[in-house]
């Protein structure tokens, strides 16, 4: 179970209190009714689903109720930082980023172990 820092409550709380809310930094287009089909598809349907460093939204649904952003490494499940909704995408501190990349190489994942068997 993950331990997540809520930037509003300024506290580390258990994953039980949170709900994941999809990829972060996807802004609803200003004049949405005027965008093209391709732009709509990009906005609504397409997601990066990246391995490694990813920016995502969480909601402290059983706490303060606020949505916020998080930078998480999907391989190590380490949260590199969390920050309030509305702030621009935050650069990940360099040291943490290196630690995250190092882990990506060394941590045993399903792909790295069982995946080899295929």
């Amino acid at each position: 179970m993950l331990l997540i820092h809520c930037p509003y409550c300024e506290d580390d709380r258990s994953e039980l209190e949170f709900r994941w809310a999809g990829e972060a930094h996807i802004a609803r287009p200003e004049a949405i009714s005027e965008i093209s089909d391709e732009e709509f598809a990009e906005y609504f349907f397409l997601r990066n689903n990246e391995k490694g460093l990813t920016y995502e939204r969480w909601r402290h649904i059983h706490g303060c109720g606020r949505f916020f952003n998080a930078a998480r490494d999907t391989v190590s499940d380490r949260f590199l930082m969390t920050y309030k909704a509305g702030l621009p995408k935050q650069p990940v501190p360099v040291a943490d980023k290196m630690a995250a990349t190092a882990e990506e190489k060394t941590v045993e994942t399903w792909e790295a172990t069982e995946g080899d068997a295929r």
């Binding site: 809310a21 609803r28 939204r57 606020r66 949505f67 909704a85 509305g86």
Partner: peptide, 13 residues
């Protein structure tokens, strides 16, 4: 309610 909160907090704050 979650859907409403999402829009209120993040798109129409």
């Amino acid at each position: 309610l979650h859907h409403m909160e999402d829009y209120l907090q993040t798109e129409f704050p």
